[in-house]
Design a protein around this nucleic acid. Structure first.
Lengths: 229, 229
DNA sequence: ACCAAATAATAGTAATACTATTAATATTGT
DNA sequence: ACAATATTAATAGTATTACTATTATTTGGT
């Protein structure tokens, strides 16, 4: 897959950035370093001055790429979800059995990224940790409706929709395909977070994973018309 | 229940506040007004200067009650979860059938608060909206582990645990009681949020509610040894 | 070598998140 | 009633943040 990914390009809504960070070396360093820094000190402590220092450049140079740190977070998380969507699509494209497709999709969307999945300048392991710890902050704002209208969350929404459709294919009679889909995506992030910080609130650890939990949940909730279960 | 609630007192971890807001009129006005203000302008835009103006008092007076706005959010959300726990306990105490108890618990924990549930100086409808929109921000921080150690999240954890135990009672063989419990509590907030802001990501609306979704999810996931289903 | 674009450096502003000090007001004990 | 004490309000000030504006310097293309 690494080779494949070398050649694809992840497209992010142009309104999210002032200047496309993919278009220059400095831009790429901004992305690379912001992932490092946010992962290390958290989104609240993170700012463009610290980022400037971190990349041996200047605060004002960062502002030529992103209006503010909120937009940068939207960029990073959009990139993550676009990458997830890509993995989901290529991982299930040749499958015909709906239940196997759904199974594979859930695995892709809920598992921990392993260190060697790296390509280009983006460290996906760190990026996933950022998404786990910070994604909610990108939409839990007073501006959510206007930003949603501008399409800032469209990649994530498309991904939820894809999973919803896979659920519908398996069980067209199920009443809550969209709710289940959003619950899996958001719930997986939450389970990953609490398995790190509130161990008593989950049964998941490195053996029994969030993937196991959601596979079990889905297989017992849906009526599989053909194939497995 | 309103009468009952008049007489109970919700106890919050003393480390969360500098001076107990329940101990004075100004303190109560701080709580009352902060709920109004955060609900209105959101947690990011909210600060103690605006709160001071709102209660016809001074910024520095607010600091005598809470170190910072993060602590105030911890106070408000702790109060909410304590109140939820209370409702859950008194709503299920006289029940004997585990599956009916669980059913009632899920209803209590996932439904929308209605306007007339008000008592004292706290507007529970607004407070629930705050919890839906802001609760995640109280623990998605770099300080989460140390604050957890200090017991700042103990009420919420106890509530998840209570629900976990109800799940275990219904189906002792189920492998993920804690994950399901945390998933319901956190997922309900999420479904309420997306039904307001990302309608395409959920099947829930005012007819088909998050409560319906989670009741269905739980009843199909657990094996009910006795009673319903 | 020269021009344009990109980047870096510097400075400055308004707002935020506080702290410290003092003044005014309420509450309590005798 | 009145002094002592606690509480609250007002004022001022600081460090940091989240930017904007201006100018200087570097870099790459022709």
């Amino acid at each position: 897959m690494d080779q494949l990914l070398q050649n694809i390009k992840i497209e992010i809504n142009e309104k999210i950035f002032v200047k496309n960070p993919e278009s220059s070396d400095l831009g790429k360093r901004i992305i690379e370093s912001s992932i490092d820094l946010i992962n290390e000190i958290g989104f609240e402590q993170f700012n463009f001055k610290k980022l400037g220092t971190h990349i041996g450049s200047n605060e004002s140079s960062v502002y030529r790429y992103f209006e503010n740190k909120h937009k940068l977070l939207l960029y990073l998380t959009s990139w993550y979800w676009a990458w997830m969507e890509y993995k989901l699509v290529i991982g299930t494209i040749q499958m015909t059995d709906p239940s196997k497709k759904l199974d594979e999709a859930i695995r892709t969307l809920t598992k921990v990224i392993n260190a060697d999945s790296n390509f280009s300048h983006i460290d996906e392991v760190k990026l996933q940790n950022i998404v786990i710890a910070e994604y909610s902050k990108s939409y839990l704002t007073k501006e959510v409706d206007s930003e949603n209208k501008q399409g800032y969350f469209s990649i994530y929404k498309r991904l939820v929709e894809r999973l919803t459709n896979l659920i519908k294919e398996v069980d067209p009679s199920y009443k809550f395909p969209a709710s289940l889909s959003s619950c899996i995506l958001e719930g997986a992030l939450h389970q990953h977070f609490i398995k790190q910080h509130f161990k008593a609130l989950t049964d998941c650890d490195d053996q029994l994973t969030p993937t196991d939990f959601f596979l079990n949940l889905v297989s017992s909730t849906l009526s599989y018309s053909n194939g497995k279960d």
